[in-house]
Design a protein around this nucleic acid. Structure first.
Length: 481
RNA sequence: GGGGCUGUAGUCUAGUGGUAGGAUGCAAGGUUCGGGACCUUGUGGCCCGUGUUCGAAUCACGGCAGUCCCA
């Protein structure tokens, strides 16, 4: 690693922020544009997004959700229809005010989320209990005009997401869906991205603007900052009332439906990058990796032809197992150069095939996360490689779980709490769950907040960790993105 | 919300008011190839705007962008 311009110049353990900024650009995941907070998603990262969307899209379709597309522009009068909702979003809405040189009669919001424009349509579409449940989703971009400094993927002004919007006749059906979707989000993070998450319910002051309540999956990244990974909201009848959505039930009585909205975004990719990379570059879990396997031929003049031919034969065999393969036979790079490049970019497995290997009838296989060379006979590759990819997926998740296990603490008193925040831990603490106490905690710790009230925690006894009020829940705290 | 630092080729970097230089990349050709090989030739740049000045990459102001710290 003599040349500092291509590889990483910092160690992940020494400066993870700088590591993150470098790895995103050097692994060709994203690039900056002239607009702050608006990133280019390059092919390598878009491929990861496509794997996530393919999984989630298939799962929600099994649940009867259909895809749609609603316009990017939302008239101001629609956006402001639900008071609490608009209050929450107003500070970060971007507006279109002109068409060409002509000022618009009514300015148009660029969607920060689509509840308002969708529910205006719902009011026309829903007339009878027979029209319910209504379940739609869209895969789109949204814009939220942040003023804090952007962090690629984790905090930006424009990002990609899916937003699901559903309406039910019965509250209990709606509430069941909230949790079904949350479980799907857990699977996206844990089973695909190998990122462990904690399920819970948002505190009152952190819930979605306009919701009855919000649930979420949360995680602590190795940078010591938490990320809200995805949210699933129960909106109750509040929007239905504001948007005049009603139907006649079986008894001919007029009623408002119960609604949900739920979403996860390209932010998920940022969490994945922070979890699995190392000093050589990123590590992408096999289930979302754009490329599973690269074969590097070791080329000498006298054996070059034979070796390259063998590499392509092997590639064909491996491809049949559903594994993506690239034969990197570029001859203007040395093998060492290629090893470094593919490690930087996070290709899961590398195969080396040279003249010596041809003689011995095996390939050298190196797993990105372990770096150890294993000799696998050519005849066993088709079986070995898919299994090794599954083991890698499993190990990455295990290691991520280990990180979470080692970096969460229970705090019963303020001293322990403050110390744990200083150490950038995830904290379980008894809390009174009031907005004013949340404010006190935030200012006393320079930004720590309640991420969620985890489902798996018991009812607390005694006082709040910060104030004298009785605790009403065990809450999860950390500083966050 | 407040403050600091930074902006020179695709990337990294030198250049304190007077001819923009290097490394790397990229293109072509040749020798190479088991952990970022080498030679030759070529290619390519001062974030934007305004001001000061005979003259600005360099100084001032503003904007934009990146990054860090504080609230």
């Amino acid at each position: 690693m003599a040349d500092s311009t291509q590889g990483l110049t910092v160690k992940k353990s020494q400066d993870i922020s700088e590591w993150y900024t470098q790895v995103i650009q050097k692994a060709e995941l994203a690039d900056y544009t002239d607009v702050s907070g608006c990133m280019i998603f390059r092919p390598r990262v878009f491929a990861i997004w496509e794997k996530l969307t393919a999984f989630f899209d298939a799962e929600i379709k099994k649940m009867g959700v259909q895809n749609t597309y609603f316009p990017l522009f939302i008239p101001e009068k629609l956006l402001t229809k639900e008071a609490e909702h608009v209050e929450g979003f107003a500070p970060e809405v971007a507006w279109v005010t002109h068409g060409g040189h002509t000022p618009l009669g009514e300015r148009l919001a660029i969607r920060p989320t689509s509840e308002t424009i969708m529910y205006d349509a719902f009011s026309k579409w829903i007339q009878s209990y027979r029209d319910l449940p209504l379940k739609i989703n869209q895969w789109v971009n949204v814009v939220r005009w942040e003023f804090k400094h952007p962090v690629p993927f984790l905090r930006g002004r424009e990002f990609l997401w899916q937003e699901g919007h559903t309406a039910f006749a019965d509250k209990k059906d709606a509430e069941k869906e909230v949790l079904d979707i949350l479980e799907l989000y857990r699977r996206v993070f844990e089973e695909l991205l190998a990122v462990p998450v904690i399920k819970g319910r948002k505190s009152e002051n952190e819930k979605f603007a306009g919701a009855d309540y919000s649930t979420s999956v949360e995680t602590l990244t190795p940078s010591g900052k938490a990320v809200q990974a995805a949210t699933s909201h129960h909106l109750g009848q509040r929007f239905a009332k504001s948007f005049n959505i009603n139907f006649l039930d079986e008894n001919g009585k007029k009623a408002h439906p119960y609604q949900n909205s739920w979403g996860f975004s390209t932010r998920s990719i940022g969490a994945m990058i922070l979890f699995h990379g190392d000093d050589k570059g990123i590590i992408i879990p096999p289930r979302v990796a754009p490329l599973h396997c690269v074969i590097v031929p070791i080329m000498f003049d006298d054996s070059k032809e034979k070796v390259v031919k063998k590499c392509h034969e092997i590639a064909k065999i491996i491809e049949k197992t559903g594994t993506s393969v690239l034969v990197d036979d570029r001859d203007h790079y040395t093998p060492g150069w290629k090893f470094n490049e593919h490690e930087l970019k996070g290709v899961c497995l590398r195969l080396e095939v040279g003249p010596k290997d041809l003689e011995k009838g095996h390939a050298v296989v190196v797993r990105r996360d372990l770096g150890k060379k294993t000799f696998v006979p050519f005849g066993e590759l088709a079986e070995y490689i898919p299994k090794e990819l599954e083991r890698m997926q499993h190990d990455l998740f295990k290691n991520a779980q280990k990180f979470i296990a080692e970096n969460n603490v229970k705090a019963e008193n303020w001293r322990d709490f403050a110390k744990a925040i200083e150490e950038r831990k995830l904290i379980y603490a008894p809390w009174c769950c009031t907005a004013e106490c949340a404010e006190h905690i935030k200012s006393a710790t320079e930004g720590a907040k309640c991420l969620t009230l985890p489902f798996d925690q018991p009812q607390p006894k005694g006082k709040c960790v910060k104030c004298d009020k009785p605790a009403t829940a065990i809450a999860l705290f950390a500083k966050s993105y």
